[in-house]
Amino acid sequence: MNTSELIEQIAETTDRPKAEVKLVLDAVIDAIVAAAKKGEDVSLTGFGKFSVRDLAARTGRNPATGESIEIAASRKLAFTAGKGVKDALVLPKQPAKKASTEKKPSTTKSATKRRA
C-alpha cells in the first residue's frame, strides 16, 4: 500500500474528503519527524513506538574492491510494533499432521536392485 492508497482507504472509512485526509496524514508524519529530530520517542498506544537509534561509526568493506572503508556514525528512525499490531499479525495455528501408520514400499536404489 502506498500513500495515495492509504489516503483513499482512510477517506472511505472516515467519510472525509481525500484532501482533508492528506493534510492530516502529512501533519502526523511531520510531527513524528519533528520529534525524531529532537531525539524524542513517539508512542501510539496499541500501534507502536517510533524511536531514534544512534549507530556508532564502524569499518565496512567496499563489495566491489574489498577495500576497508569507514562508515560514519548516524541516526536512524526505528519502529517497534505494539501489542495490538503483534497480535493482529499472529498466524492461526495449523493442525498437526497425523503420522501415517501404513508402511510405504521402499523406493531406494538398493531396494529396487534386490527386487530385480
Rank of each mutant, 00 (worst) to 15 (best):
G48T: 09
R115P: 09
S43V: 14
E20Q: 09
T59S: 08
A111R: 09
A99W: 14
T3D: 12
N2I: 15
L91H: 14
E70M: 04
E102L: 12
V52R: 05
A36G: 06
V85I: 11
T59C: 00
D26W: 12
S43C: 10
T3K: 15
R53V: 10
A31K: 10
K38D: 06
T13K: 14
L89I: 05
A96K: 15
R53E: 10
G60S: 08
R115W: 04
L25N: 05
D26V: 12
G82E: 06
S68T: 07
R61E: 00
D41R: 06
T59K: 11
I7A: 06
I71K: 02
A78V: 12
T80E: 13
G46L: 06
D15L: 13
A31M: 10
E20L: 07
L77P: 11
Q94M: 12
G84F: 02
I10C: 00
P92K: 04
K38N: 08
P95R: 02
K113P: 02
F79S: 08
V52I: 07
I69S: 03
I7W: 08
Q9Y: 00
K37I: 12
S74N: 01
G48Q: 02
T45L: 01
T112V: 14
D26T: 11
L89Q: 03
P63H: 10
I10E: 04
E102I: 05
D30A: 09
P105Y: 04
E102Y: 12
Q94D: 11
D26S: 04
L44G: 09
I69E: 11
T59A: 01
K86Q: 09
G46T: 05
T112W: 15
G48S: 03
V52Y: 00
S43H: 14
D54Q: 10
G46A: 01
A36L: 10
K22C: 00
L23P: 00
A72T: 14
I7P: 02
A72P: 09
L77K: 00
E20T: 03
L44Q: 10
A64I: 07
I69C: 04
V24E: 00
A99K: 15
K76L: 02
A111D: 03
K18A: 10
A72C: 07
Q94N: 12
A35P: 09
S43I: 10
K93H: 12
K76H: 01
A27N: 11
Q94K: 15
A99F: 13
T3L: 10
L25W: 10
I69K: 11
K103N: 15
A96T: 06
T107H: 13
D41W: 07
D54M: 01
E70H: 04
L6S: 05
D87M: 11
A99G: 08
K38Q: 10
T14P: 06
P63A: 11
K18R: 03
M1D: 03
D41P: 12
G84D: 08
I69N: 07
K22Y: 07
D54E: 14
I32S: 08
K104M: 07
A57Y: 02
K104V: 04
S68W: 00
Q94W: 05
S4W: 06
F50Q: 02
S100W: 07
F50V: 07
P92A: 13
